[in-house]
Simulated assay, not measured.
Amino acid sequence: MKFSENIQEVTLLQPDYLGFIFYPKSPRNFEGDIPTIPSSIKKVGVFVNASIDYVIEKVKQYDFKAIQLHGNESPVYCQELKTRCQSISNTKSNIEQQDQIKIWKVFSIKDSFDFSILTPYEAMVDYFLFDTKGKEKGGNGYTFDWSLLEGYPATTPFILSGGIGLDQIEAITSFMSRPESNYLYAIDVNSKFENAPGIKNIDDLEKFKKRVISQQT
């Protein structure tokens, strides 16, 4: 998300999360203030090879509930960040502490993927996010071959991302019938629902949500 009015329009659809990118090379790079949104919607800060101090600064500034790491961050980096985030949570009330800041680590997939690289991260992050490998760090607008997730060998839940739009609803339904979907935590949508970078098409998002829900009931 990027623009205040559009942010407020999207919140009316009650998504679980809203993402805010802090990467100057991205056309969706966020600057300014985030308008007040319902507490049920969790804010996610998206970073690419940023210093831990910078990430923590933004977490405190915007009260992020999740951190999406979209660069080459190491397991050691993730562990230090997790420890720093726990320190932030420990300064809050008992109720707030129950909502620990989650860490999502992105891995990009194209024609193949070596799942063994996930192993060192399993104890360090809360979720993996599988995106499509492309020219840009996300928002490339096309999907990877989800069949590569067949026999998913890890135990960390994952988020499915990469070029997901209205034309993927049947594929999502099919994926949900497969054993590896037991590890599917969320579906991340972005560029396929934009009128321009950072400006989401509300009508298409609403159609997507309704159709996905109807396919699962």
Rank of each mutant, 00 (worst) to 15 (best):
F130A: 10
A186H: 00
P27C: 10
A186M: 02
I169F: 12
R84T: 11
L205R: 01
S177I: 01
Y142I: 07
T36P: 10
E150S: 14
E170D: 09
M176F: 15
T119W: 14
L12A: 13
G139I: 02
Y142R: 05
V76K: 07
S39A: 15
S147L: 08
R28C: 10
I21F: 03
I213S: 09
T155L: 09
K192S: 12
V212C: 08
R211V: 04
L129D: 01
K65G: 15
A154T: 00
P24A: 13
S26D: 09
D188W: 02
F22W: 07
D53G: 13
S93F: 11
Y152V: 00
K25V: 10
Y152I: 03
S214N: 14
F193S: 05
S116Q: 08
S191G: 12
F3Y: 14
I41F: 12
E96G: 10
K82D: 08
S181I: 11
S214I: 07
K2Q: 15
I101N: 03
T217Q: 10
K135W: 07
I7A: 05
E80Y: 11
S93G: 14
E9G: 02
F107M: 03
K135V: 06
S39N: 07
V189P: 00
P120C: 05
W104V: 03
Y77K: 01
L205Q: 01
M124F: 13
K210I: 13
L205D: 02
Y54W: 14
K82Q: 10
P15M: 05
F3T: 02
G163R: 09
T119N: 06
D114L: 09
K207W: 15
S177Y: 06
Q14C: 11
L118C: 13
A196V: 03
V125Y: 03
R84G: 04
P153R: 08
L118A: 07
I52E: 06
I21T: 04
Y152R: 03
I103S: 04
N195T: 15
D145Q: 07
S116P: 09
I37P: 04
I7Y: 05
R28I: 05
A154N: 12
S89P: 04
S4M: 14
F3N: 11
Y121W: 09
F64I: 00
I34H: 02
F144W: 05
S39F: 15
I37E: 03
F64N: 00
I103P: 00
L149K: 03
K102Y: 04
Y77I: 07
